[in-house]
Design a protein around this nucleic acid. Structure first.
Lengths: 203, 203
DNA sequence: GTCTATAGTGCGATAGAC
DNA sequence: GTCTATCGCACTATAGAC
């Protein structure tokens, strides 16, 4: 153990991603230096460039990976029988996927402006794909006269913002588990779209 | 006109604030240099230090000013007769105040982590004061059995996030005016807290 | 694959002339 | 109040030894 130098290609790569993710989330992309990332990983700055072409690509890769994984997880859910079930599924998926990954969520919203235009376009397209899924569900519910919202597109923005806000206050050691939070948010979203909800979630 | 040098103390100060606000919002605090701000204002970098002690204070002042103005505007509203009216007032105030000020909103959420601990504490206290007003309204409505939400505190987080998200998509040249957006969001928030809402807002 | 060393650039902030 | 000039430092990315 504790040898100072050597080959670690299997280990160093992922460690760079993790360290960059954490540092970017905590201090912001522009405020974090490659030296800081290297220090966190336990190598010298120059060694990073065996794994990453440059700092911009490192950020871009983190965001693309996150959005792709989020979409892939959504695609693995079973098909819901009706708009209400589809909406509940989306709400629970969004919260349960995001809550354990606050750093990814943070940089995915905060660091878009530090992407070069082409990288920004790739991430924005993935985001639009994801958010569009919710808009489709809402539109279906409105068309079926099951939901009542002023505008399906605007409601989708509102619901995404509401759900994503969870990561700003969620505390893993707090009163509520992620499941409990998902239960409460589902009640609020159900009411938001005009569904009648049974009283306060007794078991 | 067009003289190159001279005294402009009445003009330069505010111009620095404006330029810094815009640049911080667009590129992030850490990514913006004092030279860029100076260039936007039309002076050399050194001249900024006649108005601002340092870059950190410049950021901090922008955030504190924004939160204080937001709270002051809230305090000027008339006292609402009941929780429903108070909630509607808060929703409309929040949207109508924020929508014309997207840059302030942006940096107030994004640049908190670039504040020194003492500056952060000042801004966080102001934010907590503001958001607490909504929590109080919600709690009052729940106690009076007029609202139905799983938890007043969590509902306040959800509603703040939902409302603030407006600045991410609002387009001054779009279909809806700020007033129209406020109308639609009020309907959604009213439903979210379990109020029965009349159909779609026909005039 | 990692190291050391460094080229080349830009930064925040200050000093002193006008 | 603004300018020019500059100090001292940190940065990204590369080069070449091991």
């Amino acid at each position: 153990m504790a040898r100072k130098t050597g080959s670690h290609s299997q280990i160093t790569g992922p460690k760079i991603q993790e360290a960059a993710l954490q540092l970017f989330a905590r201090h912001g992309y522009a405020a974090v230096s490659m030296r800081q990332i290297a220090s966190e990983v336990g190598v010298q700055a120059g060694a990073l460039y065996n794994y990453v072409p440059d700092k911009q690509t490192l950020l871009s890769q983190l965001l693309v990976d996150h959005m792709q994984a989020l979409l892939a997880a959504l695609d693995e859910l079973p098909v819901a029988p009706d708009p209400k079930a589809a909406l509940e599924q989306f709400v629970r998926h969004h919260i349960l996927y995001h809550v354990p990954r606050p750093d990814e969520v943070f940089i995915s919203y905060m660091e878009l402006r530090n992407l070069t235009p082409d990288n920004h376009a790739r991430v924005a397209a993935l985001r639009q794909d994801y958010e569009g899924r919710l808009a489709i569900v809402l539109q279906a519910g409105v068309s079926a006269a099951q939901f009542r919202v002023p505008d399906a597109k605007i409601a989708s923005y509102a619901i995404i913002a509401l759900l994503t806000g969870v990561v700003n206050w969620f505390d893993p050691n707090g009163r509520l588990s992620a499941q409990g939070v998902a239960d409460e948010y589902w009640q609020m979203v159900a009411q938001l779209v005009g569904l009648q909800v049974a009283n306060g979630g007794d078991t």
